[in-house]
Every structure is written in C-alpha cells, then in structure tokens.
Amino acid sequence: MKAIHILVLASFAALLMVAAVHLPRRGDPNSPANRAENVLKGPVAGAYYIQNAYLDAKTPNMVTVILADYRGFDTLGETVVVFAGGVACLYLLRRRTS
C-alpha cells in the first residue's frame, strides 16, 4: 500500500517536472508574464504596474500600490480570511455559554 502511494506521488512529481521544463526559463525578461505586451497586443499587468504605479498613487513601493489599489479586492478578501480564521477559532474553542 505504501509503495503504491509513493509510486503515485513519484509519477505525479514526474508529470509536474515534465511540464515545468516547458515553462519560460527562470529570469526570462520576455516570458509572457514579464514582457510589456501580450500576443493580443494588449497590456500585461506586471509591466503596466511597474510603469504606472508611481504616477497613479505617488507611492514608490509598487507592491503596496498593487496590494491596496489595483487589486484591492484581493486584500479585502485577505482581511476577511483573517477575520474568518478568528471567528472560526472562536467558534471552535470557546466553551459553550448558558
């Protein structure tokens, strides 16, 4: 049984490795996520953020601008996840009152 699990896991890892070597190489400035224009001639998010973050929010740290403004709803979701964790722990561990 254990051997079968390890075999499944190894083949899964092998599959991922085969896929991973077809990804753009590490550090490629022209990979689809890093370049400035995609195949549809539209803007790519990463390059747009680099070029416009300071102009849009007067904030030098691009990550902060993306976190709080461009993708602000992700961060609201993150805050709600934190809140959910707090409520979940309260719900699970607080002794029953009354």
Binding site: L15, L16, V18, A19, A20, H22, L23, P24, S31, P32, A33, N34, R35, N38, V39, L40, G42, V44, A45, G46
Partner: peptide, 30 residues
C-alpha cells in the same frame, strides 16, 4: 503554470490567449 505561460489572471483574457499556447504540455498540466 497558466499564469507563467499566458501572463494574465483574467478569465476572459486567458480564454483569448490560451489558443496561442494550447497544446503545450505546461498548459495542459496546469
């Protein structure tokens, strides 16, 4: 995997870009 091979997270845009990279193994595995 999908983000690294298409460069976008938006569903509509990804649907438009995927045909350009569709048969590649990393996309299929993703």
């Amino acid at each position: 995997f999908l983000f690294m091979s298409t460069g976008t997270l938006n569903m509509a845009e990804m649907a438009a870009i995927l045909p350009y990279v569709n048969q590649q193994p990393q996309v299929v595995v993703g």
